[in-house]
């Protein structure tokens, strides 16, 4: 069945008709062409599709688009502002917090899920926040360093 939904994505309201079975991740990628949110698995394991729903991290592969009707979604495309990289993007760049980049959007959204609420999060808390995000390349050390450095930078601003 079809349903008309309005979802605010990165500050812009989008109204569209979707099939009720459409997953949020497919709505973002295919209806809105926001392909920064990746699909890495079919088992809610990899965290690549992590976005924020009303400020909390969620797996966009495990939510129907209709469940986001009337809510605010933030994706990786919403991080950069006016050509300026977000501190988490800068920090991943500077700390070599990515290799192939496939997990990176989900990794950054999960990281922001903790450091925006707790800028002084401990290393353990940061690692815990990234538990649900798999990376085959970095070995995770540089990722943790990147998140820590972004938290410091964000607290300064």
């Amino acid at each position: 069945m079809g349903q008309t939904i309005t979802v605010t994505v990165n500050g812009t309201a989008h109204t569209a008709e979707v099939e009720q079975r459409t997953l949020l991740v497919h709505f973002l990628r295919e209806a809105l062409n926001l392909t920064g949110t990746h699909i890495g698995c079919d088992t809610s394991t990899c965290g690549c599709c992590t976005v924020h729903l009303d400020g909390e991290t969620v797996l966009s592969c495990s939510l129907l688009a209709v469940q986001a009707d009337g809510h605010a979604v933030r994706t990786v495309e919403g991080l950069e502002q006016n050509g300026e990289l977000h501190p988490i993007q800068k920090a991943f760049h500077e700390n070599h917090g990515l290799q192939c980049g496939f997990c990176t959007p989900g990794m950054m959204m999960s990281a922001l899920g903790v450091i925006e609420q707790h800028p002084d999060a401990s290393d353990d808390e940061i690692r815990e926040a990234l538990e649900g995000n798999l990376c085959r390349g970095t070995g995770y050390q540089n990722l943790g360093a990147g998140v820590r450095s972004a938290a410091v930078e964000m607290a300064r601003n």
């Binding site: 909390e56 991290t57 797996l59 999960s110 899920g113 926040a129 649900g132 995000n133």
Partner: peptide, 8 residues
Amino acid sequence: GSMTIRNR
């Protein structure tokens, strides 16, 4: 699960 799973 993970933080993201515990949120939902």
